[in-house]
Design a protein around this nucleic acid. Structure first.
Length: 577
RNA sequence: GAUUUGUUAGCUCAGCAGGUAGAGCAUUUGCCUUUUAAGCAAAGGGUCCCGGGUUCGAAUCCCGGACAAAUCACCA
């Protein structure tokens, strides 16, 4: 962060100092009583005006319109904005008009947080407004906010730079209307699901994020190190294996909203850390889970949006039950014309070649079928659709299909061409499970770095016996995207992962004084464009002299012109402590 | 990782016939007691992302780099 402040920041710091001089603490300790919100005033004042004769409210100044002895401000609290009217003689009934003339008109800025008391009325323009009778500074803002204005529903000068919006989400939330709403909905989605599960009697649990074996999904993990144990630990890529251990332990239904971490690419649908809800229910199968998932999504959509359909990038998606169901092999047949059921690896590679899909040695049957589906079928499923009965090679934790041992009892829910949920009739045969892990190991040896590790403790748990169980995982971020009409995951995460901001090396006046620059000149040297000591020392003395004296003249500085021998002293490289 | 586009004042953006850096809002000063993206008048504010090159001269042209966005690739 540069130490060189913009003009507006300097003005605000000066205002801050003046407030202190006036005996006003711009960051007071004591609580401020808030007895009403902007939203309440807007909705209830027209019905019960007499209830708003004395209100106390706090918020951030978002606009100011000052005209002599009267001013209007827009105050923004957590729910919205309310206009405030100040009249000099009302907030300064005595002789001393400083609070109005100096504090309100000059020392307060857009972005400052204030508390006021007053009564609500309607202006001649018909806007519900608080007529303030007192004013208290609650927090002085030292940086200018982007000014976003709106008239007749048209937004002017919106704060749109995605990088700045994500890096400074706090600013985004303050100035961009609608950002808060997305995150309120996100919480509603989660609350709605949680209530649904709790009503069914399932237990919310917490399982380890730091895992010695990153199991439960085929993904590249983040690795870290535990010093005391001196072992590597992995950030979880899934919580599946732990939840199933709990089913072994005797719970009928367990679920967890889990932050998972995958060390893979980032784009508008992938963030390195993301939220998944996983639920496991004993004595159920994947057919039951399909019904359960439909019921859950229809209800969540209803509770969050007030209906079952949502619009996203021009497409209307309907969460009304029942959802379409189709097996993955039928889906491939339908969209490519190839019947890949029963094909061996060579035949599948042949199909891939004909479809223009690149293959490599590391790909087994499961991966090949996945590629065909991903490349030619997935994007067709806009309306919620269950894709079922995946090949056994693709699903090492899933039970074989009751009618065909080559397949598994698995479904993925596709919405808007993307996978949203994934569910199994869980594999509880410990012998089969061990074999499947070993097949994964072979894939790993062939070079598939996403293949799963063998979790011996998980196998031991299965050997004690797990009841027949169905489990389902759903990507919360992607679901929230659907239900808020957002097309990038960054819009539904408060703080999406960003490349670290490169901060300019902070230099201070003292750094320049160390090489002999006088205190008088040090600040000017920085303002004249030498933002590091190195940048100054790498310049020729004559150039520096010209530049500094030019700066002195331009800014009409009341100090003597700089002399050559003084500058040569700076460049000599002697440091002074 | 590839391609395309972008990076200019606090914010949104113009300027790219290479020739002294612009607008609106915001800021400062003055006027204004019910305004509405308030108004009127004046002023200040910029490493034109960074580093090289071409040129008498680069925000503008060329090369390299950083960062971002979009598309694609990768991604149970």
């Amino acid at each position: 962060m540069s130490l060189i402040l913009s003009e507006q920041e300097l003005v605000r710091r000066n205002s801050l100092a003046e407030l202190y001089q006036l005996g006003i603490n711009p960051y007071p300790q004591e609580a401020f009583k808030v007895d009403v919100t902007a939203t309440q005033i807007h909705s209830e004042f027209p019905l019960k005006p007499e209830a708003f004769n004395q209100v106390s409210i706090a918020g951030r100044i978002m606009s100011r319109r000052i005209m002599g002895a009267a001013s209007f401000m827009e105050l923004q609290d957590s729910g919205g904005r309310i206009q405030v009217y100040f009249k000099r003689d009302d907030i300064c009934p005595e002789e001393d008009k400083t609070l109005y003339n100096t504090v309100l008109k000059r020392l307060l800025d857009i972005g400052d947080i204030i508390g006021i008391t007053g009564f609500v009325f309607t202006t001649q323009m018909g806007e519900i407004t608080i007529h303030a009778t007192s004013l208290k500074v609650l927090s002085k803002s030292l940086r200018p906010l982007p000014i976003v204005k709106e008239k007749d529903g048209v937004i002017y000068d919106a704060f749109t730079d995605a990088e700045q919006r994500y890096r400074m989400r706090y600013v985004d939330l303050i100035v961009n209307e609608g950002v808060k709403e997305t995150f309120l909905r996100r919480t509603k989605v989660i609350n709605s699901m949680r209530t649904f599960f709790n009503e069914k009697g399932y237990l919310e649990v917490e399982t380890p994020i730091l895992q010695p074996i990153p199991g439960g999904a085929a993904a590249r993990p983040f690795i870290t190190h535990h010093n005391a144990l001196d072992i590597p630990l992995y950030l979880r890529v899934a919580n599946e294996l732990y939840l199933k251990r709990l089913i072994v332990g005797g719970f009928d239904g367990v679920y967890e909203f889990s932050k998972d971490f995958r060390n893979e690419g980032m784009d508008r649908t992938h963030n390195p850390e993301f939220t998944v809800m996983e639920i496991y229910v004993a004595y159920k199968d994947y057919l039951w889970m399909m019904d359960f998932t439909e019921e859950m999504l229809e209800r969540v959509a209803n509770e969050v949006t007030g209906g079952t359909s949502v619009e996203i990038s021009g497409k209307v998606i309907d969460f009304q039950r029942p959802f379409k169901r189709i097996s993955i092999l039928d889906a491939i047949k339908e969209h490519t014309g190839y019947d890949v059921s029963g094909m061996n690896e060579t035949e599948l590679k042949d199909v891939c070649r004909k479809l223009g899909i690149e293959t490599d040695e590391a790909m087994g049957k499961g991966k090949l079928i996945d590629e065909i589906f991903g490349g030619h079928c997935e994007h067709h499923y806009i309306q919620p659709t269950f894709i079922t009965d995946y090949p056994v090679e693709m699903s090492p934790l899933c039970k074989r299909h009751r009618d065909n041992p080559e397949l598994t009892e698995r479904f993925e829910l596709m919405i808007n061409g993307k996978e949203i949920a994934n569910a199994y009739t869980e594999l509880n045969d410990p012998i089969d499970q061990r074999n499947r892990f070993e097949e994964q190991m072979m894939l790993s040896e062939r070079g598939d770095d996403e293949a799963m590790f063998i979790d011996q403790d998980f196998l031991r748990a299965l050997e004690y016996g797990m009841p027949p169980t169905s489990g389902m995982g759903i990507g919360i971020d992607r679901l929230v995207m659907l239900l808020t009409g957002q097309t990038s995951i960054q819009e539904v995460l408060f703080f999406p992962q960003m490349r670290p901001e490169k901060l300019r090396k902070a230099v201070s006046v003292q750094d320049f004084m160390k090489i002999g620059v006088s205190e008088t000149w040090a600040a000017h040297v920085m303002k004249a464009g030498y933002i590091t000591v190195e940048s100054l020392q790498s310049e020729k003395a004559a150039v520096i002299q010209q530049k500094l004296n030019g700066y002195r003249k331009k800014n009409k500085l009341d100090i003597p012109a700089i002399q050559m021998d003084e500058i040569e002293g700076w460049l000599a490289g002697n440091t002074i402590d």
